[in-house]
Design a protein around this nucleic acid. Sequence first.
DNA 1: CAAGCTTGTTGATGTAGCTCAATGTCTTTA
DNA 2: TAAAGACATTGAGCTACATCAACAAGCTTG
Lengths: 250, 250
Amino acid sequence: MSDSEPQLLHLHTLKASCASCSVLELCLPIGLTGVEVERLDTLIAQRVKVKKGAALYRTGDPLRSLYAVRLGFFKTSVLSVDGREQVTGFQMQGEMLGLDAISTDHYACNAIALEDSEVCPIPFSNLEKLARDLPSLQHNLNKLLSQEIVRDHDMLLMLGNMNADERLAGFLLNLSQRLNRRGYSSRDFVLRMSREAIGSYLGLRLETICRCIAHLREENLVDLQGRNVKILDLPGLRQKVTGCHRHTEL
Amino acid sequence: MSDSEPQLLHLHTLKASCASCSVLELCLPIGLTGVEVERLDTLIAQRVKVKKGAALYRTGDPLRSLYAVRLGFFKTSVLSVDGREQVTGFQMQGEMLGLDAISTDHYACNAIALEDSEVCPIPFSNLEKLARDLPSLQHNLNKLLSQEIVRDHDMLLMLGNMNADERLAGFLLNLSQRLNRRGYSSRDFVLRMSREAIGSYLGLRLETICRCIAHLREENLVDLQGRNVKILDLPGLRQKVTGCHRHTEL
DNA sequence: CAAGCTTGTTGATGTAGCTCAATGTCTTTA
DNA sequence: TAAAGACATTGAGCTACATCAACAAGCTTG
C-alpha cells in the first residue's frame, strides 16, 4: 500500500457552481432546469482539492457527502479481511463517489486521487431532503445508483468469463469511450493508473497486464508506451472484446 | 440455455399485503410505520407466481415494476455479446429484483425462477411518486440500491482475489447467513441452483465446483450430498474465506 | 419401471496466468 | 544532476483451474 500518505484536503475559497460546470451534462444535475440546478448548487458549499495519492475517504468513515469528481481521476478499492486489495473502479470528471456508503452510512471503500483532483461534496442528508422537492433530482440519483450496479455486473462478466487480453481490451475501450464523451480524444490519452491498479481492477497481476499490452502492440491494435495510449485500430479492439471466448480462437 | 421455457406468469387473485408479509422486516418496507406500509400496499395490485424455470423478465424488457421476492428463489444473469452467461446473483425472500433497470428503463439482466416462486410487483413510476411523500420509503430504496453495489463489490473481490475453494466457502457462508436471517437453519439447507449456476456465479466451471465440494467434504467442513448442505464446521468455513491467500498456505 | 434426459462426479491432460527474478526506465527529491 | 525509489518489462518455470471424456445418479415421462 503506497497510498497511505497523509490526507491532504485543501479548501477552495471559490464557490462551486453546477450551472457553470463543464460536466453539468454528465453529472448529478443532468436534465435539471436552471432553477433546479441553482437549488442543487446551494448544497455544495465549496469545492475540495485532493492531492495525488491522498484519500478522499476511507472504508469505515461515516458518510457525510457524496462527491462529484469535477477534475482529476480517482480509484476506489475494497480490502479483504487479510488485506488484499481489489480496485472496484476508476472515476473521472462528472462521476460520483460514495454511492456505496448510503447502504450503511459508512463508506465501504477507499477513494484515492490518482492525480491532483477536485471534487464537489454534496452533503447527503441535504441531498435527500432536496430530492423530495425535486423529483428529477431524485430520479437522477436513482439512475446513478442503478448505473453503478449495471457497471459492476459488466465487470463481473469480465472477471468471470473473459481472458486477460479481452479484459485489457475492454478496459481500454471503456476509458476511451468515457473520455470521448467528455470531449477528449478517444484514440489518444494518458493512463492515470499504474499497471498494478489496472491489474487489480481486472483481476490480474501487473506482469500479466504488461504482457497483454505487448500482445496488443504486436497485433498493431494499440501503441502503448508507458502510460501514453494511442489506439490504432478501434474496430479491431472492439472485436477482441465481443468475440470473448474464454480461451483459444478469435 | 435450458431456461427458455415459455414464460408462465399466473395471476394470483389474493391481494398482496406487506403488513402481513413474513419478510416485512427484510424488504422494501423495513422500518416504515403502519400507515406508510398501508400506502405502499396500495401500489401492489396482486402477487405474481412464476413457475420454476420461467423468466420473470429478460434483458431489454421495459421496466414496469421492481419485484420483491415473496417466496421462492431466483437467479439473475447477464449475457455477453457472444452469448456467454454470467450469473450476477441469487435472490431469496425479501430481496428485490429489477434495480438494475432503473438506469435505462430496461432490465439489464434475465431473472429466472429456480423453483416455483411468488413475487410482489411494485410499479416503479408509482413507487417513485409515493417515495416523494414518504421520505423513509425513498431512503429505503436508496439503501437497497447502495447495498446491491456493496454486494457487487464484494463479488468483484471474490472473483479478483480468491481461489476456487475460498469462493465456494464464501458462497455457502453467504447463503447460510441470509437463510438464517429469514428464520431458517444456517447449518442445514438445500441449494436451489445447479453446480453450473454456482460456477457461473463464482467465475468457475461446474467441474471445479464439484472438486471444491469434494475438498470441503475431505476437510470435514461441510457435508454436501447432491443439493443438500450440512455445514459441520462454521468457524472452519469462515477461516477458509478470511485467510484468503490467492494460492498455498492456510 | 424402463428409457431418456438432466445433473453431478471423477480422472487425465493442457494451458493461461501466477510467481519469482533480473533488469530497465521513469520520477522524485535533495 | 545524482541517487533513490517507484514503476514497467521480460524471461523461465510452476500451478490452479479449464478442458475433454467417461460414467453415475437423480428426475421425468410414457
